[in-house]
Design a binder for these strands. Structure first.
Length: 721
DNA sequence: CGCAAGTACCTTTTT
DNA sequence: GGTACTTGCG
């Protein structure tokens, strides 16, 4: 059977174990994607399972598309009948289909982060709470994590005032969502679980249909997703989950590594298969990665091995500043390309935070070397793109208040904050939502009634309502592209956006969105709109990564999960960056940082560069960073060192400094504004500001004739005069 | 109500 | 070094 050809025994076992629960623990590069794909192919071609009965859940849409392509080659026919996608996409489909059983409107909008924040702000407003005291972002993350653990507002039993506030905001927020006929990302999952819970018959239909379920990246699923898996697999129990605890990097998004442990508990008869042979990386890269991950305490030991050649040792490169770091990376890539050792597209530069990409971009541009950036300012987060999407969302779901408020005055129609507030209040007094209120206004053109608006305001508000009504009518007959053009034109948005200073760029973005709309042109009008909106709501940044172009890839470590490159540069190998300073105090989070580093190293097939900078500008001020502890976990003999500022002894010094770090704390001299001080290089000056940081303190000093300088006390020699 | 200029706050990672 | 929000004036 050619489907099993070229698989090793463990992989074969994983492909053939199609009856009953299966847990596949797969190390990086062990061919797990291959296993899942071949399993599905095996089910269809060898076992003769109807593709309609198979569900395969992936982490990104891109992974889904890739699997589809591979399957097309393996089984060619009827791949279209598979259910293949992310949890969110699959749930959205289920809810469109059957959501009405729990009161979910068929035309619900999907709210992203931004939309959530604006609803939370409105909740705070409604509850007369100060957004400065209760940061919307923080509330959003608390609410989201509650939802990810299937907690309703009433399940929150915190005792502090903040907990109480959270509970009330959560309640109000959920109310606003419902009124807007909208679901946030968490709701997509949660509502589906609730749908199944409350409607056993519907659940049974899906159970009956999906006789074979596979879940990729299982280590990054949350409680709700796991619950969903259990529900769907409840009848046939043919469920295969694939994951690697060492690559769990989304706990901050409520992913729960315990799902893997619980799987064996919930399915005691589960067959456990280990995939430990790595086909991706060279021996030395794998060794380095193993040393890094082995330092984690909370971990089941796992033996990865490879038959690949020994290869080249990882390079540790030390540079002076972030700029120099970027420049070094670019020139090294240039060298590799010129010597023919690698193509541009073989190379990826990975980093912990998106902010780090800027210095890189500048270096690439200066060098004239092309690159592709995964998610800079994300396309779908651009203002003009969101605006047009908001118009489209309103057509599908006019109760969508976030979209309504977004565009009701864009372009300016003379509807300011006051009129809007007035509208909200009036709508509430009439017991209707804002859109219905607008329609009422439009119908009451007698204007004899007592309305709290000026005649002019009534006119513009009605005008808006009539326009949207008109769009809705058009949406029933026009294809996506025609509708798109109609809306952009008749709303006055085109004229508005092209009239702005950077109008051309922005208009180009609008046209790019139009290009996306083209993909939905052939669908029946209303379906096309739904599909487009769902598509844009659920895309991730990696999804848009252009595959074919021969350029370097710039990508965060998180986004790099599941990808591989011959040559990998990980930059910012410093304490405070990787591991990120926000994780340093918490052992559990620190382990996740380590896994992130592990994920990065194991992306590489042939060559890894670990790059760090001494000095880095963060938020305006300059910091000096020690080398990442993860570098110290790799035995020196496995590493080749280089770079602009490398010194032999520094390595040891850094390790010693790490030891001393704790003792250093609290023994720093203290200064206050106004103190006269002396610095070896700059002479005498006056302290302008003094601020304690985590393990250090920052002093700002104004020197005579030298200007104002900023120092870290642990590095700068500053003494009182 | 709109716009320009100033200010606080920030930055982890994303479906 | 940027943005999202506030302030003040026309």
């Amino acid at each position: 059977m050619d489907i099993l050809d070229g698989l090793n025994p463990a992989q074969k076992e994983a492909v053939e174990a199609i009856n009953g629960p299966v847990l596949i623990l797969a190390g990086p590069g062990s061919g797990k994607t291959r296993v899942i794909t071949h399993r599905v192919a095996y089910l269809i071609r060898v076992v003769g399972v109807n593709p309609r009965s198979i569900m395969a859940v992936t982490f990104t849409n891109k992974a889904a598309r890739e699997m589809e392509e591979r399957l097309n080659r393996l089984v060619s026919a009827s791949v279209r009948d598979l259910t293949l996608g992310t949890f969110h996409a699959i749930c959205a489909r289920i809810l469109r289909q059957d959501g009405k059983a729990i009161g979910v409107d068929k035309k619900f909008s999907i709210y992203d982060d931004d939309d959530q924040i604006s609803l939370i702000k409105r909740s705070l407003q409604d509850l007369a709470l100060d957004p400065k005291q209760f940061a919307p972002r923080a509330l959003q993350s608390v609410i989201s994590s509650a939802k990810s653990q299937m907690q309703e507002p009433s399940d929150l039993h915190g005792k502090s005032y903040f907990d109480e506030v959270t509970k009330r905001v959560y309640e109000r927020y959920q109310r606003l969502l419902t009124d807007s006929a909208a679901l946030d990302f968490d709701d997509l999952l949660l509502k589906t679980v609730l749908l199944f819970r409350q409607n056993p018959k519907i659940l049974e239909r899906y159970q009956q249909r999906y006789m074979h379920i596979q879940v990729d990246e299982f280590q990054d699923t949350n409680l709700v997703q796991y619950e969903l898996v259990k529900q769907l697999a409840g009848k046939y129990r043919n469920v295969c989950v694939v994951g690697d605890p060492d690559q769990s990097i989304y706990s901050w998004r409520a992913a729960d590594i315990r799902n893997i442990l619980n799987f064996e508990k919930d399915f005691p008869d589960a067959k456990v298969i280990l995939l430990e042979q790595n086909y991706r990386s060279t021996q030395l890269i794998l060794d380095a990665a193993t040393h890094v991950i082995s330092a984690n305490k909370q971990r089941k030991p796992k033996e990865l091995w490879t038959e690949n050649e020994k290869g080249l040792p990882p390079n540790v490169i030390e540079t002076y500043s972030a700029e120099e770091e970027a420049q070094w990376v670019v020139s090294e890539i240039d060298k590799l390309v010129r010597s023919g050792e690698a193509k541009s597209s073989d190379c990826a530069v990975m980093y912990r935070t998106n902010a780090q990409s800027r210095a890189l971009e500048e270096a690439f541009i200066r060098y004239g070397m092309p690159y592709k950036l995964v998610a800079g300012t994300r396309f779908y987060e651009r203002r003009e793109v969101k605006d047009v999407i908001a118009y489209l969302r309103l057509i599908q779901n006019p109760y969508d208040t976030v979209s309504l408020r977004r565009v009701i005055n864009v372009p300016q129609r003379g509807i300011g904050e006051r009129s809007l507030d007035e509208l909200t209040r009036w709508a509430e007094s009439q017991g209707v939502n804002e859109y219905k209120a607008l329609q009422l206004l439009a119908q009451s053109n007698e204007s004899s009634e007592e309305l709290p608006f000026s005649a002019r305001t009534v006119k513009v508000l009605s005008g808006f309502a009539v326009m949207i009504e008109n769009f809705i009518e058009k949406s029933r007959e026009l294809d996506m592209v025609k509708l798109f053009d109609h809306v952009v034109e008749k709303s006055g948005y085109k004229q508005y956006i092209t009239g702005l200073v950077d109008g051309e760029d922005r208009w180009e973005n609008v046209m790019e969105l139009r290009g996306v709309a083209q993909d939905y042109r052939d669908l029946p009008p209303e379906e096309g709109l739904t599909a487009l909106l769902e598509g844009v709501a659920l895309v991730s940044d990696v999804d848009d990564l252009p595959e074919k172009v021969d350029t370097v890839t710039l990508i965060t470590l998180h986004q790099a999960k599941g990808l591989e490159f011959p040559v990998v540069f990980i930059i910012g190998m410093e304490e405070g960056i990787l591991p990120h300073y926000k994780s340093i105090d918490d052992p559990a989070q620190l382990e996740e940082e380590r896994r992130l580093c592990y994920v990065g190293i194991t992306r590489a097939k042939q060559k890894v560069y670990l790059v760090r900078a001494f000095r880095r500008h963060l938020m305006g001020s300059s910091t000096v960073n020690k080398p990442s502890r993860f570098l110290l976990d790799i035995p020196p003999e496995l590493i080749e060192r280089g770079g602009v500022t490398a010194k032999e002894d520094e390595w040891i010094a850094a390790a010693e400094a790490k030891e001393k770090e704790i003792q250093l704390d609290g023994e720093l001299p203290e200064f206050k504004a106004g103190d006269h001080v002396r610095h070896d290089q700059f002479g005498e000056g006056v302290v302008v500001n003094y601020r304690k940081t985590r393990n250090d303190a920052e002093v700002v000093v104004a020197f005579d004739g030298e200007g104002v300088k900023r120092f870290l006390l642990s590095f700068a020699k500053i003494e009182k005069v």
